[in-house]
């Protein structure tokens, strides 16, 4: 089974302070650390599990700047066989649709049975690449997948919907699945594997190496800003019995009980 995993290198912002840069369209990145997008690590682990079951080949693919090679190397150390970086420096801030177009133009030159992507990128949170890519490739897809049970021709998948609902699908391969966090337990790249991966070549594709259709510009970032603080919180003051009385009054007044 040949598998393609699309991954993205993203800033780690969960515990960092984020501020807007001078363009007003992006964040300041110089003090942030970068790593593989969280749900992509689960997509990669799912690919490695499928490979362990069916054999085959895993290709990891990323549209990114040169430092993305570090992330791709970790993917190689975790079990991917080939890595391709599409040079982001050759493109001008592509939006999600254009990114999917670029990925498609590379993927159509590779044999695959399944494409796995993370379900969402933690930086821009568009959740578009996977499904758009599937549409452009004209293959079936399932988003928000929490279980994969594949054979050579088809795959059963579980999708997690709102309110804890699970949808069970049967999909014909080749197909694309966007993977939710928690589907598996991503392994660490071991030290020996990291050292072995350091010697592997990462294929670098520039604009000139890709047969690209006209990129469609659908969306442009106009502004990024921190919403101004508005007064929507009322802090009750006074002794506990006074604040309790005030609180009970508000609850009654708003008709909540």
């Amino acid at each position: 089974m040949d598998i393609i995993v699309c991954i993205k290198r993203v800033p780690q912002t969960a515990e960092a302070e984020v501020s807007i840069d001078s363009t007003g369209k992006s964040i300041q990145k110089d003090r942030l650390t970068f790593d593989m997008n969280e749900s992509d690590t689960y997509a990669l682990e799912e690919a490695v599990l499928l490979k362990e079951k069916f054999e085959g080949n895993i290709t990891v693919l990323s549209l990114g700047y040169p430092d993305t090679d570090d992330t791709l190397r970790i993917a190689l150390a975790k079990g991917a066989d080939n890595a391709i970086r599409i040079k982001a420096e050759n493109f001008e801030n592509p939006d999600a649709f254009q990114t999917a177009q670029i990925l498609k133009s590379v993927i159509k030159t590779i044999n695959f049975d399944i494409i796995l992507t993370g379900c969402i990128a933690t930086d821009d949170a568009y959740s578009q690449i996977g499904v758009t890519l599937a549409e452009l490739l004209e293959i079936p897809h399932a988003a928000l997948v929490i279980k994969v049970d594949a054979n050579e021709q088809r795959t059963h998948v579980h999708r997690e919907l709102e309110e804890g609902l699970i949808e069970h699908l049967d999909i014909k391969l080749p197909a694309l699945l966007t993977i939710l966090t928690g589907i598996n337990e991503p392994r660490y790249a071991s030290l020996i594997a990291i050292r072995r991966a350091a010697k592997k070549e990462i294929q670098q594709l520039g604009k000139e190496n890709i047969e690209l259709e006209d990129l469609v510009i659908n969306s442009v970032i106009e502004e990024l800003y921190v919403p101004p603080v508005t007064k929507q919180v009322e802090i009750l003051t006074g002794s506990p019995s006074e604040t309790a009385t005030k609180l009970a009054g508000i609850v009654k007044e708003k008709g909540l009980i």
């Binding site: 392994r187 660490y188 790249a189 071991s190 030290l191 020996i192 594997a193 050292r195």
Partner: peptide
């Protein structure tokens, strides 16, 4: 078990004897 899987014990031993 996590140390084993990630080859962390291998830092204790030179390459000649199976470490890193």
């Amino acid at each position: 078990e996590v140390f084993r899987q990630t080859d962390l014990f291998a830092v204790l031993v030179p390459e000649k004897y199976g470490g890193i």
